[in-house]
């Protein structure tokens, strides 16, 4: 899967990924909140093949699922980070977004780099051709959550 990276830093909290004021059941409002704590108009700049790349501890703090839901609504189907909060990891899986953990990814990817991502095989090829590996998910979790949720949206 060829993707375009949208890069954020370390320690991005859920209150930045999806500020509380965007909490709603209205998908239009929810999607507007995506990354709004850092880049208020981020959702308008998201293209179909965009993914999020971040550093350590992506999504600490609140367990609100709105962050992962907003990604789902914006069509972001992959987040690569050096590590995730428990909540962000589980909420992504449950919203059909692949949370991929890759040590050192932040230093190797720049904004709008092109990446080839293979979540089920456990590998990513960076723009310069370097190949990185990660532990693929247990098949059971892939089948019951990620694939099912994708069908809901697309």
């Amino acid at each position: 899967m060829r993707r375009r990276a949208r890069v954020f830093g370390n320690d991005v909290t859920l209150d930045e990924i999806h500020p509380g004021k965007y909490f709603s059941l209205d998908p239009e409002k929810v999607v507007q909140g995506l990354m709004a704590g850092i880049e208020p108009n981020f959702h308008q700049t998201v293209k179909d093949d965009d993914i999020i790349v971040a550093g350590r501890y992506f999504g600490m703090g609140s367990g609100r699922e709105s962050g992962a839901w907003a990604m789902q609504l914006a069509g972001i189907d992959i987040v690569i980070a050096e590590s995730f909060s428990r909540y962000m990891f589980r909420n992504c899986v449950n919203r059909g977004v692949w949370p991929l953990e890759i040590e050192g990814i932040l230093d190797k990817v720049s904004e709008k780099d092109r990446l080839d991502v293979y979540p089920e095989r456990g590998s990513v090829i960076l723009e310069d051709g370097e190949k990185l590996y990660f532990e693929p998910f247990p098949q059971k979790i892939i089948k019951s959550n990620i694939c099912q949720r994708k069908d809901d949206v697309r």
């Binding site: 367990g63 609100r64 699922e65 589980r90 909420n91 449950n94």
Partner: peptide
């Protein structure tokens, strides 16, 4: 232990989770 909303749906239906 805290959970997001989708996990909570499964817990409410099954009384269990992973």
């Amino acid at each position: 232990i805290g959970f997001g909303s989708s996990d909570t749906v499964e817990i409410l239906k099954e009384g269990r989770t992973w």
